[in-house]
Design a protein around this nucleic acid. Structure first.
Lengths: 194, 194
DNA sequence: TTTCTGATTGACTAATCGCTCTATGAATAT
DNA sequence: ATATTCATAGAGCGATTAGTCAATCAGAAA
């Protein structure tokens, strides 16, 4: 068949349909037929529909984390690290809108309960460490690192929603991404110079 | 029957179940039985399940807006207005966790498409005007008002998620709400003094 | 070739769910 | 008292869906 092997093709099709019709609004039969495989093949690779949903979530998260690990390298000062994390997260989100939307859709669904807590924490461990260390080095405000991270992540979500709702030119988009990063940075940076 | 009349009882039960099991994970029969009414009664008040979902959403939004209209009165300077909007939004969210969670769940579901765009905009019109006017008066940074509003709203969402994930004492909670409001304010306020 | 293993199919099923419908009850108006 | 209207019940129907299963196919191993 095509270049994608079948499990990947099934996941890609499921993503498209889940975003358009929701989890329960998308029958497995439709996923199978649109992916060009039979109903039985889908259940050969994924024991249940729930397992398919969770597999899709973890696959997307891994893809995002791998992308960030490649792009957002560790060079530069603290602000530069955060800038890279911010801008590359948004770059990935805008290039993979369905996937980024799906992450949030998943987070506000009962399926989230199917993923162990430790798995969830592990997925953001590197970023959490970044916030933890920067705060310990007094580069960030003396607030809980989890709170600082949560606020920064939600800045990304908010900007993503804004950018996908409007139609903005590519340059304006970059401009606004830069602007909002500066806002976010002044928000979390420690104003005292130690 | 109980003090709540039946449509309200049905909506309250649906909210609880939707948050726990998702829209499609909750059959109308279960809503009816847990609400103490028959299946037919449910469909007497709500023509379809979709209509029930949308009604629940608009009812919650109206309740929130009415609460804010009462509490966040218009006295005080600009910063005070925003502080009231911020803290009372969070107060309501923490007192009505299911309802606040449901709003986000609804926003990331295909049911959102069933609500006309103008209806959605109307629900946040007053807040949008607040941002618009404050920016026009050069009290806020010269960015699109919609963007400023989106970012501020997402600060509330992020803090809500943080506070509901942790177990924090009531005083610490108030402290953190104040802290995060100050962060948000320094983020959106215009640093130039005209 | 023969055998074995995993991939693939699609018809089938058992269960569920949204919604309808008829019958009855209760309340108010005439 | 009668009529009218709305509320309520709950059995039941038609449609849909997740998941199964027996049969076939393809390729590798022996």
């Amino acid at each position: 068949m095509s270049k994608l092997d079948k499990p990947e093709k099934i996941l890609a099709t499921a993503l498209k349909l889940f975003v358009a019709y929701g989890f329960h609004g998308t029958p497995t039969s439709k996923i199978a037929s649109e992916a060009g495989v039979s109903n039985g093949t889908l259940f050969h690779y994924f024991k249940t529909k729930d397992e398919l949903v969770v597999s899709l979530y973890t696959a997307i998260k891994e893809e995002l984390n791998q992308y960030l690990a490649e792009k957002a390298n560790e060079t530069g000062d603290v602000k530069e690290k955060f800038r890279n994390l911010f801008r590359y997260s948004l770059a990935w989100a805008l290039e993979n809108r369905d996937a980024f939307y799906f992450i949030q859709q998943f987070h506000f669904s009962p399926h989230l309960g199917l993923v162990p807590d430790e798995e969830i924490r592990k997925q953001s461990e590197k970023h959490r460490n970044l916030f933890q260390e920067a705060r310990d080095a007094k580069a960030l405000k003396p607030l809980p690192p989890d709170l600082l991270m949560m606020l920064s992540m939600n800045q990304i979500n908010g900007l993503f929603q804004y950018l996908t709702a409007q139609t903005v030119s590519a340059e304006n988009q970059q401009q606004q991404i830069n602007d909002v990063f500066e806002l976010t940075w002044t928000m979390i940076v420690n104003p005292e110079k130690p």
